[in-house]
Design a protein around this nucleic acid. Structure first.
Lengths: 148, 148
DNA sequence: TCCTTTATTGAGAATCAATCTCACTTTATT
DNA sequence: AATAAAGTGAGATTGATTCTCAATAAAGGA
């Protein structure tokens, strides 16, 4: 059994809940996507593989995955919530271009110790890291200057 | 004339736009609030002072203030966008409790040099800093443990 | 001051992601 | 198999945000 399956099962059982077929399909899809995803992308992914699950169930399952620590809600773009799985993935900064929508990730290594220190000072239990810098990537910045 | 008024006027004029009465009222209200605010809070604030401006105008003006660099869209909470004015306010981290909704700010001083270095390396023009840590504050964490 | 042009506003309609409802279906247990 | 509890799907609902469009305000010239 894959680790994320074991962890999710444990999380659910601790709450008296079950790892059902739809939840298993969602879990697998989430870990098959190696990038940020939103509900629509997840829904499409499942449909393509003939594993249709209703949107309602996806919307209900994502918070469970967040609470279990397997994924996090890491950014919001174009009026949608985006998630990513975090099991074994180091935290990172997101650089989001407001024009072309590209999301670049960079390491958080240099910054994490400071954040963790502040967290423990105020006894804050971090669940999601939403460390996003929004602005213009160099390509779009160059284009803006050209068109002036 | 206050500096933010001068800056906003300059920004608007450069785009062939005008500092109208509703925009001036919104600008003043934004700088009278010394905390994060959303559209509803701004709207209420204006009404209380008998300076009613339509929600539509508020929604249209906020992006102008963001683009002019006077405010930033710094967090999203309870399905609402929150802004804060940044003129003269150093950037900071937000610690958001998912349970009680409290938002604590801490200094970014230790982290900003790293972020700026990465930004210049990839020639990314930062417009908004959305550096948010979500989780449980110590009070809510204690409560959760009690109720188990 | 009046006129013309262009930007702006307000009110309400429209949009759309996310949530909720509820009858039906699974799952686990006896 | 029977029962009880958890879970699901379809569609309705919600609510923040955006859009539309007729009416209004601002700026500059005559």
């Amino acid at each position: 059994m894959k680790e994320y399956e074991r962890l999710f099962t444990e999380y659910l059982e601790a709450k008296g809940q079950r790892l059902t077929q739809p939840r298993r399909l969602i879990l697998e899809a989430v870990f098959s996507l190696h990038d940020h995803f939103d509900v629509e992308q997840l829904y499409d992914r499942l449909r393509i593989h003939n594993e249709e699950v209703s949107r309602a169930t996806i919307y209900r399952t994502l918070p469970l995955l967040v609470e279990s620590g397997l994924i996090q809600h890491s950014l919001r773009q174009a009026d949608r919530d985006f998630y990513e799985h975090i099991l074994g993935h180091p935290q990172h900064l997101h650089w989001i271009c407001r024009k072309c929508g590209t999301v670049v990730e960079t390491s958080l290594e240099m910054v994490l110790p400071h954040i963790n220190k502040v967290a423990s000072q105020q006894r804050f239990q971090i669940e999601d890291y939403q460390l996003n810098l929004r602005g213009l990537c160099w390509k779009c910045a160059d284009n803006e200057n050209e068109n002036q």
